[in-house]
């Protein structure tokens, strides 16, 4: 960063006052956050693939309950809004606040439309009796997912530390955290089964577990694994819907900034990093749609 040389006096944090540094810092921060989001959804994808492998017939039948048309329309809605947001970023860079207002507002409406279609789908499934989990026994099936989540948090934290160290040019720390993250990711497949068993035996010693005290990827035939599909379906699409809601909030904030004519060729950071977040929401759905709706 050449701008570092520009600020040579003042307190150590003085270089943060430089607008170019603030801009690239904010953008890198958003990319760092998006990196952790990729890992978060990536673990859910892996989890889904594992259970699909274990119960091909049941997952085939369960995924038949989803309407491809609803998923396809939602894909189109998100892709279109992503396009609008990309135009909005360009407009903000030119200081065209009017266009930013238009693009962000229509994108928020697109997000709303997505949620309406999604809730229509959810309520359709509810009326068929397909809930995330219906019987007390089902939550035992979630132990491996719980272990997965803990591993993810550790790996995500190590990744964040590695990024931070890299950003501050502390390369020995960077390698340490990077190595740690890789070790965690490599070890975890071999630990997830024993740890899930350990968890169920610990909980089993203080509470009465249902018949299948082994966490058991096997379930008891069709019905359990059927619910596993919908458990994962609700977890993945629900988490994604939360991201849509958050993204709508961010875009509406950008809209309010544009209403106050805040954007110019000198300052457009909120539109750009808000746009990055919205694109990620689109990107995750690009993978969710074929995985949940199309593959059997």
């Amino acid at each position: 960063m050449s701008s570092h040389a520009a600020v040579t006096s003042g307190p150590p944090e003085a270089h943060h006052w430089d607008p170019q540094t603030a801009y690239s810092g904010a953008k890198l921060g958003m990319w760092l956050f998006l990196a952790t989001e990729i890992l978060l959804f990536g673990v859910l994808f892996t989890c889904f693939a594992l259970y699909r492998w274990a119960f091909p017939a049941e997952f085939h039948e369960a995924s038949g309950h989803l309407k491809i048309s609803a998923g396809a329309i939602n894909t189109a809605v998100l892709i279109f809004s992503s396009y609008l947001v990309a135009l909005g970023v360009g407009a903000a860079q030119r200081g065209d606040n009017e266009k930013v207002k238009k693009m962000t507002l229509i994108s928020v409406v697109c997000g709303l439309l997505f949620l309406v279609i999604k809730s229509y789908e959810y309520f359709g499934k509810f009326s068929e009796g397909l809930f995330p989990a219906t019987h007390g026994a089902d939550w035992v099936l979630y132990f491996p997912a719980l272990v997965l989540g803990v591993f993810l948090l550790i790996a995500a934290a190590l990744t964040a530390f590695a990024f931070a160290a890299f950003h501050y040019h502390e390369y020995s720390k960077f390698y340490k955290y990077l190595g740690g993250a890789i070790v965690v990711m490599v070890l975890f497949p071999f630990l997830v089964s024993p740890l899930a068993d350990l968890l169920s035996s610990i909980i089993g010693s203080v509470a009465t577990l249902p018949e299948h005290t082994h966490y058991a990827w096997r379930g008891d035939g069709l019905t359990q694994s059927y619910k596993m599909y919908f458990g994962l379906y609700y977890a993945m699409t629900g988490l994604h819907a939360l991201h849509v809601i958050l993204g709508m909030g961010i875009l509406f904030w950008v809209y309010l900034l544009a209403r106050r004519n805040r954007f110019s060729s000198e300052y457009f950071t909120p539109m750009e990093i808000g746009g990055l977040y919205w694109h990620l929401v689109d990107l995750i759905w690009i993978y969710l749609f074929p995985l949940l709706y199309l593959i059997d």
């Binding site: 952790t36 990744t159 990711m185 497949p189």
Partner: peptide, 10 residues
Amino acid sequence: FPVVLLVLMM
């Protein structure tokens, strides 16, 4: 970086 981690894990 996260993509590589993800591929490793998968």
